[in-house]
């Protein structure tokens, strides 16, 4: 189960993801975020992970996919409020090299 709430602040938007991110829920999250970013000319997309209970590599794919989507919109992605139980997964994912994780998050 997953819920996405998107809040806009000028050219940036924060997507608050609440629940589990797996292959099943990722599709729904992706569709909501992509439609919003494209329709609202978002330049900075923040993904707030503070309410993510569970995540597997589908969540890493979701972040990489939004990175590419925002690149096409000439914008950026950043992941914020990574809970401690997801830090090991983020560390082994190589996402740090992509520059989408804020300094000091993991």
């Amino acid at each position: 189960m997953v819920e996405v709430k998107i809040i806009k602040d000028e050219e940036s938007a924060t997507a608050f993801i609440k629940g589990d991110i797996d292959h099943h829920t990722a599709k729904d999250i992706r569709e909501q975020i992509d439609a919003y970013a494209q329709n609202n000319q978002i330049k900075l997309l923040k993904l707030d992970f503070s309410q993510v209970q569970f995540m597997d590599s589908s969540g890493i794919g979701l972040i990489m996919g939004r990175f590419k989507m925002m690149q096409m919109l000439k914008g950026k992605v950043t992941v914020i409020n990574v809970p401690s139980h997801l830090k090991r997964l983020i560390k082994i994912s190589g996402l740090l090299a992509l520059g989408v994780i804020e300094k000091g998050e993991v």
């Binding site: 990722a26 589908s58 890493i60 794919g61 979701l62 996919g65 590419k68 090991r88 082994i92 994912s93």
Partner: peptide
Amino acid sequence: LYTTGGAERAGLGFAVMQS
């Protein structure tokens, strides 16, 4: 990072299981 799954897959499933 090896994947046959396209743009939305990271190719990390086995690496995660291993770790």
